[in-house]
Computed example of a mutant assay.
Amino acid sequence: MGKVLSFGELLLRIVPDTEGKWLQENSLPFFVGGAELNVASALALWGVPTSYFTALPDNLLSKQLIGYLQELGIGTESIPIQGDRIGLYYLPKGQDVKNAGVIYDRAGSSFAGLTPGSIDWDSVFEGVDWFHFSAICPAINQNVADVCAEALKVASYKNIQISLDLNYRAKLWKYGKDPVEVMPALAAHCDLIMGNVWAANKMLGMPLQEELVQDIEKEKLLQHAQLTSEEILRAFPKCKTVANTFRFDHGAKGIRYFTTLYTHRELLVSQEYVVNEILDKVGSGDCFMAGLIYGFHQGHSPKQTLEFATAAAFKKLFILSDATTSTVAEIEETIQEYAN
């Protein structure tokens, strides 16, 4: 079994409380994260050979972070040491990273300084059979978008499986291009594309039928998921599988959550999870992506893979960190506990 390589920026998430108590307490909690690192952390926890490509400066914090990743079982052999800083973002506890209140402090980071032509991808991809990245990477700047394209061409040539998470971060697309001008060319290399019908519209130009989404009715959403998935497979012939997540607020503090997987001309629908209170929304989608990679990498059936990924993402909502700490056994227990 080859390695899964995740490509993206390591970030520190600073977590101020919404009441401002951190000012009196003189303390700001933080978590180590970044969408692609969250995927790598989950896979390493679940026993999948895993490596991570980011860029870090030459300082004490970077050395400690690399040691931390290695303790998690994540390979760090490809991480270039360059630039001057580690990216940050600020998000209050319990908020979604898509929330308007998110504050990014990533300009001039080591990862943002990556340039095409500077990376030996043949060496980076040695022993790798799956490559994962997200739409957050090409949102940073044109150079990083070009590095993504460079990596995808080499990975495609080497017949490495490629997965893409259509994470949309409006506050990051600031270098003069809309996502739809960048993402389709990258998506063309991908075997598995994950997101939702809104992200597919915003980032890949897939049609959005308002009459099917305006009332958030499950059957209409499933109908749209199938239409969007079929359109993605037509537009990007290399893609064989499309996943969609549907997560909606339920009451004051809860969520309603279900997902779909379209493959072999069939739309699979997960069991639905409804709870009245959760702890932390950050990283749930990353955990779902990791669950998909885990299932397919282990040779599980599409249905098994979907249910595992969905349960893993659901359990992440009760974990106060960017990455999951749930084991395979715990996730499988959750599937049985909530089975219809």
Rank of each mutant, 00 (worst) to 15 (best):
K3P: 02
K3M: 10
S6N: 13
R13V: 07
T18L: 10
K21M: 08
W22R: 06
W22P: 03
N26G: 10
V32F: 05
V32S: 04
E36N: 12
E36A: 09
A42T: 10
A42M: 13
S51R: 12
P57I: 04
D58H: 09
N59H: 11
L61G: 02
Q64F: 07
Y68C: 04
Q70C: 05
E71L: 09
L72R: 15
L72P: 05
T76S: 09
S78C: 11
I81P: 12
G87P: 04
Y89P: 02
L91P: 01
P92F: 14
K93A: 13
D96R: 14
A100N: 09
G101K: 07
A107R: 12
G108K: 01
S109W: 01
G113P: 02
G117E: 06
S118I: 00
S118Y: 00
I119F: 12
D120R: 10
S123Y: 11
F125S: 03
V128G: 08
F133N: 01
I136N: 00
C137W: 00
C137L: 07
A139Y: 12
I140P: 01
I140F: 07
N141H: 07
N143Y: 05
V144S: 01
A151C: 06
K153Q: 11
S156A: 14
S163V: 10
L166H: 11
Y168R: 00
R169S: 14
L172A: 06
K174H: 15
V182C: 01
L186G: 00
L186N: 09
H189S: 14
K202T: 15
L204V: 01
M206Q: 06
P207V: 09
L212S: 09
L221Q: 10
Q226I: 02
E231S: 07
A235N: 14
C239G: 13
K240D: 12
F246V: 08
F246W: 12
D249M: 07
D249P: 08
I255M: 02
Y257C: 03
F258W: 15
L261M: 13
Y262Q: 08
E266M: 07
L267E: 13
V274H: 08
N276T: 12
N276H: 12
E277F: 04
L279T: 13
D280H: 11
S284R: 03
M289D: 07
G291D: 09
Y294P: 02
H297Q: 05
G299K: 00
G299H: 08
Q304L: 05
E307Y: 01
F308R: 05
F314E: 04
K316H: 01
S321R: 10
S321M: 01
A323R: 06
T324F: 07
T325S: 14
S326D: 14
V328N: 10
V328C: 08
A329D: 15
I331T: 15
I335E: 10
